[in-house]
């Protein structure tokens, strides 16, 4: 499971590559948490460009990371979200807490 990172303007961009389900979520979670510990970003942006599938296990991971940055007054956002992921996101009510932006430039500019 590959998770890439970039750091721009105190924002950590998290680029997840592959399906997010119960099998992959532990590894994704620990990679993200290590990076958050190391870099201490204010905000985080999940780049979902290479994620074709996500179920409620992924929602758990995303809400968990949102809580980490929120505790230090940061925000979380998502970019490049595909339709299946958008539908799970809508059902789980993530709209209220984690905005979706069309792309990285929009997200970095607006949060």
């Amino acid at each position: 499971m590959n998770v890439g990172f970039d750091f721009i303007n105190n924002k950590l961009i998290i680029r997840i590559d592959g399906d997010i389900d119960h099998h992959t979520c532990d590894e994704i979670r620990s990679k993200i948490d290590n990076e958050i510990m190391r870099r201490n970003p204010k905000d985080i942006i999940f780049d979902m460009k290479n994620v074709n599938f996500m179920d409620s296990s992924g929602i758990g991971v995303i809400i968990g990371r949102y809580k980490l940055v929120m505790a230090k007054s940061g925000v979380a956002a998502m970019i490049n979200v595909k339709p299946q992921i958008q539908r799970v996101y809508d059902i789980c009510g993530l709209k209220k807490i984690i905005p979706i932006y069309e792309n990285e430039i929009q997200a970095v500019k607006n949060i």
Binding site: G60, V61, I63, R87, I91
Partner: peptide
């Protein structure tokens, strides 16, 4: 404690 969101059944019912 496992960071489950409790949304699995809701996802099944919606889809």
């Amino acid at each position: 404690e496992l960071e489950r969101s409790g949304m699995g059944f809701t996802v099944m019912e919606t889809f």
